[in-house]
Design a protein around this nucleic acid. Sequence first.
DNA 1: AGAGATTACTAAACCGCTCTAGTAAATGGG
DNA 2: CCCATTTACTAGAGCGGTTTAGTAATCTCT
Lengths: 343, 343
Amino acid sequence: MTRPTIDDIARRAGVSKSAVSFALNDRPGVSPATRERILRAAAEMNWRPHKAARALGGARADAVGLVVARPAQTIGAEPFFGLLLAGLQAGLSARSVALHLMIVEDTAAEIEVYRRWTSERHVDGFVVVDLHYRDRRVPVLEELGVPAVVLGGPSGHGTLPGVWADDREAMLSLVDYLAALGHRRIAHVAGDEAFHHTRRRMRALKDGARRLHLADAFSVPTDFSDAQGASATRALLAGPRRPTAVIFDSDVMAVAGLAVAAEMGVAVPAGLSVVSFEDSLLTRIVHPAVTALGRDTFGLGGQVAATLLAAIDEPGSVRDVRTATPRLTVRESTRAPYTARKA
Amino acid sequence: MTRPTIDDIARRAGVSKSAVSFALNDRPGVSPATRERILRAAAEMNWRPHKAARALGGARADAVGLVVARPAQTIGAEPFFGLLLAGLQAGLSARSVALHLMIVEDTAAEIEVYRRWTSERHVDGFVVVDLHYRDRRVPVLEELGVPAVVLGGPSGHGTLPGVWADDREAMLSLVDYLAALGHRRIAHVAGDEAFHHTRRRMRALKDGARRLHLADAFSVPTDFSDAQGASATRALLAGPRRPTAVIFDSDVMAVAGLAVAAEMGVAVPAGLSVVSFEDSLLTRIVHPAVTALGRDTFGLGGQVAATLLAAIDEPGSVRDVRTATPRLTVRESTRAPYTARKA
DNA sequence: AGAGATTACTAAACCGCTCTAGTAAATGGG
DNA sequence: CCCATTTACTAGAGCGGTTTAGTAATCTCT
């Protein structure tokens, strides 16, 4: 009752195990009749290749790694992560490549896993998320010489291929939109400054505001948590120069901010416009629904998968991929500010 | 510049490769001095075992599989899944077992992956989620004889060990709570009837209502989506006998329901009490914050991991694990109904 | 018809590690 | 001091495939 090996098939079909190997791998060197006989024998015995045996011979692991250093809470909370995962999967499983997922404490542990999985030949490549400013993981992966794709860019990921959306362009268009509505005091509840994209968005906000001669436009960094998003909003709404519009870097923080506005009796959108830099179920599900910059996260995962598979097939051949700039979906949370409407 | 093998270490340490294998695996048969020398050589050459080579000899794959048949949207949307994943990881990585994740179209594909990964020796066991009524996966896994743990119970998972919380008890306590507040007309926006736990909850609601002689208590099945949660709520609020309290089977649907209430001008909790059967960031983040049954999903993942590892170590030794019954966290969305307060 | 090419197949090495069987030297007991 | 046991090690088979080198039979061409 033990699992069949190619030797068993060879015996049943009356040929050598090399012939079986050829037949099963569509290689020349077996006559159609014999091939047919071998395939039937294999099917009858319900044979499946032993992954390890193939891998030992130097074949692919047919798996890629995704190592994430984040607190568990964040992973559950952000729709982004789940959608990315699903998109990655879709892209990979078409080529029957599996995904090895590992959640670790910190970047040091993450790097250790990269080293281990690489030398154990456990995976064929890696997907790197949450690109940091001066990211330590990039040089390590370059040194290991393992195929890897970074979700983020357009810079900061060294020689590794990056897949990125133009956050700068998106932020500028957002500022344009709010300014066109009449907003002059715009606040930005940003994410973690350690992240590359957070910095880029903050810079873009400044630039956009200067271009349009806006009175106030400033960013408040947070750790991306709902708690900090809420307290940042509280501080903004209680402050002396209350903004008329707030841009939140994530859907979670936008919804937290919305709750704070409700709690403080500030009507949205009448008294405050709210925009999320990330679109998801969250922004659609709440009332009022939140105007948000949306990108196709599922599709993004698919593009990352495709890029990584290409990098595995032909190392060095792959260049950066710029995905579509996030587009604004206007919902109920934005409107011209009270002052502008009065004028 | 190729990766070192035990042969290389053997040469450098001046011993045979068997000696190296013994030393590296803490087996007797090498003197302390030699062992020390071998370990140093291995460390100097930065040697790591080749997983496939070990696996070929019959060793563990040191990985478990999680195959999920759900639409991508759901995976992104529900905090539950991410938290479970993180908890699983935490439990597994302590024993350096990796998680193979696969997202598939349907149950048929899921079963096919079980078969493939089992015969390829790709994983040592499986975690099974979303237990269905008369689940087809259970007999297949039993037949394959592969260790597996089912998230769900206390019945319907055959001889496989199950990890479950007492949904029935939880629903009964929920009904008790609402009845104590004075609610007599309670609606239940349920999940998919194909799921085992949905049926159990529906039955528990009926039983609880009968016990307390409640006028109306009925369940409306949905597909767990925010869209169906919203439309079910709309129907309930527009219907002739509007309930004074609604129990939602998931956090996503509860929040969608909340938005519908706001949109229809029904104040929560003044005109309607809302309870979620699932607690998460979502229920806390919205305004009003939603009263919810909470369980430690992260911890649950850890328990599933522990149970599966035990099942792998000693097949047949593991019995069901009943986890803590979800406990109610009262927030702002529940209150005595208007009629009761008048009296 | 005979040399060379092609076809259909087999034998065996190889991937990196584990583990059993075997051997030589050191140790111990009476 | 000699035989039995233990210790410290080595040789080599085996895990399940892939792949190279080799062989016998058939085909092709002049």
